[in-house]
Simulated assay, not measured.
Amino acid sequence: MANILPFSSPMPSLAFSILVPLLFSFSSAASIGDLLQAHGLPGGLLPKTVESFSHDPSSGLLEVLIDHPCYARYEGGLAFFDREVRGNLSYGALQGVVGWSQEELFLWLPVKEIFVADSDSGVILFDIGVARKRLPVSSFEDPPDCLPGTEDAAAAALGPLGRKGFWQQR
């Protein structure tokens, strides 16, 4: 009778070389940007100050904790992020968004949904309830800086033409 050693045949090493990459492809994303990109969204949608995040692939629920409530400037305007941002992540969309507001015409409107209009067009749409804002996907390649949620930080985020007192409008 021949002695058979556990890894003497090429089959276990072949199985190992196939299974290990599969296991890593199903593991959680290394960063929120990686997770967003894996779902067809630009990696820079959320600010640099993301502290942690969790994603339940079965329900799509995405929960993101940001270091502190803050303002971020994008090419298309100014956004405010609460400490916690939630939504249902699916391919090309983040729906039922909570904790994210966008400034439009001196008003702060909650972002309800974000989705890529058409991957060929390079346009991302923000549903802010009363309208849909079309922005270039390229505006969201890199995560923006996020200034703490104070009136001074908001004025700084607005730049030299910023208005005094808009903090109270929020």
Rank of each mutant, 00 (worst) to 15 (best):
I4S: 12
L5N: 15
F7I: 11
P10V: 06
P10K: 08
P10S: 09
P12L: 06
A15R: 11
F16S: 10
S17L: 12
L19N: 07
V20P: 04
P21C: 02
P21K: 04
P21I: 03
S25A: 14
F26N: 10
A29G: 08
H39G: 04
H39Y: 12
L46A: 04
P47Y: 07
V50I: 10
E51D: 12
S54R: 11
H55I: 05
S58E: 11
G60L: 05
V64F: 04
L65E: 15
L65N: 14
L65T: 15
D67A: 15
H68M: 09
C70P: 01
R73V: 09
Y74M: 10
G76L: 10
L78A: 04
L78P: 06
L78I: 15
A79T: 08
A79R: 07
E84D: 11
R86V: 10
R86D: 03
Y91G: 06
A93K: 11
L94Y: 02
L94C: 01
W100S: 00
W108V: 05
W108A: 09
V111N: 00
V111M: 01
F115S: 09
V116M: 07
S121Y: 01
F126K: 03
V137A: 07
V137I: 15
S139C: 08
P143A: 08
P143Y: 03
D152C: 02
A153Q: 07
G162N: 06
K164R: 13
K164M: 10
R170M: 11
R170S: 11
